[in-house]
Every structure is written in structure tokens, then in C-alpha cells.
Amino acid sequence: MQNIIDVKNLSFSYPDGTVVFKNIDLTVSDGESVGIIGPNGAGKSTLLMLLDGLIDTHNGQIIISGMPMNKKHIPGIREKIGFLFQDPDDQIFMPTVFDNVAFGLANKNISEEDIKEKVTRILNYIGLPNHEKRLANHLSFGQRKLVSLASVLVMEPDIFLLDEPTSNLDRRERRIIIEFISKLEGQAKIIISHDYDALQQLCSKIIIMGDNQILYSGDKKVLSDDAFLNKCKL
């Protein structure tokens, strides 16, 4: 299998001097599903932003789908990647549900009819039928999370970067989201989560981040190894 995400020797610090990680390596192969766990502030969200080319200064090598991360390839890389942000309020920036879900499609110059059809289909699919005209700011947190997910799913990306997809959801919404993610079988996924049960269901590989590095990378059996998790401050 080919590596769709290939990260070598990646180091990153925020401009204010906060060192996030040093010399980390990471590979994800086509169709593989990787879970990332780690204590708060370990740099999990930062890693995903780097993979989507949203933070542009770093040391090391990032190759997505054969394209090295640089100015020339960033638009192409972003087209391959669907990024669900940790906080849906960062991702919802248009008045209506329709506008939010259609935003990415409109940027791709797809025809109006196709966009309408795709948005309607995806909203039905995630269980928010006839919500097109609703104001996004009137939705509950879980519904906003679903809308964010819809706006990512609708782009049909090859790679999903999902930052805490199940946090703050009620039992039913959580189950719905897990179900959608598990149906994405052909695509590669990186899922950040503190929800070990979800990772157990969704991932084949687990990566543990902490102390500015990758502490573990391997089988998901680690999720039930309490002694090791404690050692990783989890």
C-alpha cells in the first residue's frame, strides 16, 4: 500500500516560542484509519493544521498524496483533504445551513443545480433533512457539529482529518457520527479523540502524542493498556 500521508522529521514551534513537537515521523497508508490520542496541549490539533497546509512554516517534510507541502501544491492538497475542526463555531461562518455546506462546493465552481442536489442529499444523509434555510446559529452544538461534518463530507475528500468528532455530543448524536465515519471505508482518516471506545471501533492504528514527540505508534491494543497510558500522562 502506498502512503497517502508521509511526514518525516517534522518540527514545529509557534511564533511565540511554544515548542509543539520536534522531529516526528508519521505515515498513513491509503484507506487506513489512524487514531491520535494525547493529553491536552500535546499538539494534536496543530499537527492536523500542518497537514492541511493551514500553518505554513515548519521544519521537515510533509508529503500528501505524492505532493510535497509547498505553495504550489497547497490548493491541490486541500482539495484532497476534508478537515473537521475541533470547534464547530470556527467552521460555521455563513448564515444558513445551506450556505455553510455549499461553501466548499461553490469554491470548486460546481453548477448551482449540482450543489443544491449534493447539499440536500448530504443533509438527508446526516439526519438534518429540510434544514437548508435554517440559521446555523440557532442550531444546537451537536447539530452544528453535524453541519460541520456535512460540509466536509459533501466535498468527497480522499483524506479525512477529524479533530474530536465526538466531543460534547449526546449518546445518539455520538452514535450517528461514529456510524458515518465508519462508513468512510475507502478514505484515509486521522481521528483525534479522547473517546477511546470510538477509536476502538474506527481505527486500526493508534498514535500517542506527548512531551513534544510521538510516544507510541502501533496496534490499538494500547487503548486498554492502563499502565502505559498512565505513563503517557493519559
Binding site: 492541511d52 493551514l54 490548493p75 478537515f83 475542526f85 470556527d90 467552521q91 469554491n107 470548486k108 460540509s151
Partner: peptide, 22 residues
């Protein structure tokens, strides 16, 4: 900070500075 993250969310969905209206 939030404005920056919103801008990132726009970029990650292919925003290039063009306005689209149906």
C-alpha cells in the same frame, strides 16, 4: 485567534478570495 481559525476553515474548503452567489 478565532478569526484566524475561521479563515483557516475557509481556506481548508478551497476559499481563494472569490465570492460566489447563486
Amino acid at each position: 485567534d478565532r478569526a484566524e481559525r475561521v479563515y483557516m476553515a475557509m481556506l481548508s474548503r478551497g476559499f481563494t478570495g472569490h465570492i460566489h452567489s447563486f
